[in-house]
């Protein structure tokens, strides 16, 4: 009788969740130096729950999601760390095995559906193809499945629209078709990379509702990648804030949005327009630019833009990289900041 060995993690502890990412690093060697796009990110996610990954452009959120799909395999990217999905480690998984998971167990909704759908093939064909690659089925069955999926994501007259090309769809319908394609194999992990950025505000809410409803139906784990804290507040259970390729704050949505512990998270919250505030109040953007991923500032990557660095004695923000640590005695809410709790009194009240 074959004995199933427990998965071997680096530190010997069993994967603690359906998705358990440990110290993930994605580095790209370039002529100018090593780009540390993702530099030590860890998080966990259970089925039926939603994680929001938030950060500016270049913070490493999309690179993280591509790593979960194994799409860095065969490129020059150097990956390390562990990605445990349902007891299987993905970083070291060979490409053929990874390919079998892609689209079947893990799938992705991309940002701009117009460029993410092939302009030369009918929408229905593209959905059916995603089904056929993982299932033994006839073309007819796959097409019926595509029509069924289009119907489920709310495309009117799916029998007719299945033969349309992407350019014949509106923006919102294209994103629905994209979602239909990513769900055609009932994935257990769904990654949505800025799924609403290219859409009208009214359509945004519909798409987020749709993702939520389908998650309820299939019980998938969902990761929503966005720079919009409003989207996270609306959809997620947990939130992970990334800056310069690292996680700088991680916790439940309630904890992070109500008691943000990192000055960068405060900045993100402050730079959001609010309906309740006076129209003459100016938006308060975070000053400065995201750091270069080749030459991260020594110490805390956010320190050059941080208004609070002077409150930390000894200039530690510029010399010593802060580790993630539990905040306000809450183990489930961690942040990487040297600032002592009692120095955060005049932070933004949210």
């Amino acid at each position: 009788m074959a004995i199933e060995l427990p998965p071997q993690t680096a530190d010997g502890t069993a994967p603690s969740a359906f998705l358990d990412v440990r110290d993930l690093q994605v580095h790209f060697p370039t002529e100018d130096g090593l780009v540390k796009a993702v530099d030590g990110v860890s998080f966990t996610l259970e089925k039926g729950r939603t994680l929001g990954i938030v950060g500016e452009s270049g913070s490493g959120k999309s690179v993280t999601s591509l790593a979960l799909l194994g799409l860095h395999k065969g490129t020059r990217a150097i990956l390390s760390g562990e990605i445990w999905l349902d007891g299987e480690e993905l970083v070291a998984l060979p490409e053929p095995a990874m390919r079998a998971l892609r689209g079947e167990k893990v799938s992705m909704i991309f940002q701009d559906p117009l460029s993410a759908l092939h302009p030369f093939y009918m929408v229905g064909n593209q959905i059916a193809e995603a089904y056929l690659v993982h299932h033994k089925a006839s073309k007819k069955e796959a097409k019926d499945r595509a029509i069924d999926m289009l119907k489920r994501v709310g495309i009117p007259q799916p029998e007719r629209r299945v033969n349309d090309y992407p350019h014949q769809f509106s923006g919102g319908m294209r994103q629905r078709a994209m979602i239909a394609m990513s769900l055609v194999c009932n994935p257990e992990l769904l990654i949505a990379d800025e799924p609403t950025t290219a859409l009208d505000v009214t359509v945004q809410a519909q798409i987020l509702d749709l993702i939520h409803d389908l998650q309820q139906e299939y019980g998938s784990a969902v990761i929503i990648i966005t720079h919009d804290l409003g989207v996270v507040a609306q959809t997620s259970n947990d939130i992970l804030v990334m800056y310069g390729g690292r996680c700088i704050e991680y916790g439940s949505v309630q904890d992070v949005l109500n008691h943000p512990e990192h000055p960068y998270t405060w900045g993100l919250l402050q730079s959001m327009p609010s309906l309740s505030s006076d129209v003459h109040t100016k938006l308060n953007p975070i000053k400065g630019n995201p750091p270069s991923l080749i030459n991260l500032p020594s110490g805390c990557a956010f320190s050059p833009r941080c208004a609070f660095k002077d409150r930390v004695p000894g200039g530690r923000c510029m010399t010593e990289r802060p580790e993630l640590r539990p905040m306000a005695g809450n183990d489930q809410h961690i942040a990487a900041c040297h600032l002592a709790d009692d120095e955060k009194t005049d932070r933004v009240a949210k």
Binding site: A100, G103, F110, D112, S115, A116, E129, A130, V133, S182
Partner: peptide
């Protein structure tokens, strides 16, 4: 992007 999509489907 649509080539990335094709790969993401597991083709």
């Amino acid at each position: 992007d649509y080539i990335r999509t094709a790969r993401a489907k597991g083709l």
